[in-house]
Simulated assay, not measured.
Amino acid sequence: MSELGKALKEAREEKGLTLDDIQEATKIQKRYLVAIENGDYQLLPGQFYIRAFIKSYAETVGLDVQELFTQYASEVPNPAAAADSEIEKLPSRKERVERTAPVKSKATSTNVSSLLPKIIAVVALIAVIACIYFIVIKVNGGSDDKSSKASSNDDVTLQQGSDIGDHKSKKKSTDGATGETADKTADQKQSDSTKKATSKNDPSDQQNEDKPTQQTLKMTSQSGTASTYSLSDTDKFVVEVTAVDGKYSWLTASKDNASGERYYFANVAKGVNGQKDASFKKDLSSVQSLYLKIGNTTGAVVKVNGQVLKYPTDTTTQSLTINFKKS
């Protein structure tokens, strides 16, 4: 411990102050206060802070600063001398130039070394592209030469064949056969197309109940969501309810009215995820009336003997009663 540090510590203890109290009063870190008391000035952040820290410490413990600096002048560093010492330690311009030059050279050498692999890679890539280009040109050129030779040979063969009677005769025979085969093929395709079209349009290949008949289906009354229709001028009464593609609806079908004999009570669906495709179709030619209740009219289509029944309103749920008068 230095004499100056000892004097500061004794003054602090006489006032009953701790290092924490001095730190709180001066805002100087405790480790620096300990260094001042021990005379370890090299632990302080710099020579210029020593006098300032000692001055703050002395004022806090009630010592005369000027007297303290005069009495312990040999222990308190001189900032001016310290500054001169620091300046003397600075390198000269010549030394700075000599130190900087090798660094720059080294940096330049390092940059060139780091770029060398990239340059080699670029050159190699260009060489590979050039090789591929020449190979492609050569291959294409060879193909063109072969094609040209083949074409030339074909021309020579045709010219020679036209001068020989046997060859000419065979060519005509072959062409004739080819023409006949082509004609037969075209006729056969046309015949098949005609047969398909005839078969497609032939009414005998379709079910009779799906073909609209000359019947009269009209609405006779309508109240709210309930509508009544009459079917006449026909001896058949086939009703079919199917779902629109991608939709479903629930359907009730019963004889005469809602409480009559039930024909169907389930969903009709088509192409709906999680539901099986389902529809309702029944020949009711032996009954006089049918009651239908449809839960989602936008998802269901009603056909009577193949004729689509148009809903009277846009209501989602509707009840339909169809009265049948056999002709």
Rank of each mutant, 00 (worst) to 15 (best):
S227V: 01
P312C: 00
A124C: 05
D256H: 08
T157Y: 02
S319V: 10
Q318T: 05
K15F: 00
N257D: 06
F53S: 05
E75V: 04
I87H: 05
N208R: 08
V34E: 07
S230E: 14
G179T: 08
A52N: 14
T100Y: 13
G274L: 08
G165L: 07
S254A: 14
G179M: 11
A52M: 14
K94R: 14
D202L: 13
A243C: 13
V308N: 06
S319E: 09
E98Y: 12
S221G: 05
E88S: 06
K303N: 08
E3G: 04
Q190M: 00
K94Q: 08
K236V: 12
F53A: 03
A182Q: 12
T321R: 12
D175T: 07
E75F: 01
L231N: 00
T321G: 02
N257M: 09
S204N: 05
I22Y: 04
E67N: 06
Q214D: 03
A253E: 06
N111F: 08
I137N: 05
K247H: 06
K255M: 04
T213C: 01
N111V: 09
A253H: 08
T18L: 03
P312Y: 07
A300H: 03
I22D: 11
A25C: 01
Q42F: 01
S74C: 07
V304E: 04
V136D: 04
V34M: 12
S227L: 00
K149F: 03
K89P: 01
D314A: 15
S254C: 06
D187Y: 00
P117Y: 02
K138D: 11
S105Q: 14
S254T: 15
T317D: 07
G176T: 10
V287K: 12
L115W: 06
I322Y: 11
D145P: 02
V103N: 12
G5T: 10
T213I: 12
Q66K: 13
K15W: 00
Q190C: 02
I137W: 04
S109F: 02
I164N: 15
S114I: 04
T298Q: 13
A127W: 08
V301T: 12
T216H: 13
S221D: 09
F280K: 05
S204D: 03
Y57K: 15
H167R: 15
D84T: 15
V239K: 11
L17D: 03
L115Y: 10
V139D: 03
V139W: 02
L8Y: 07
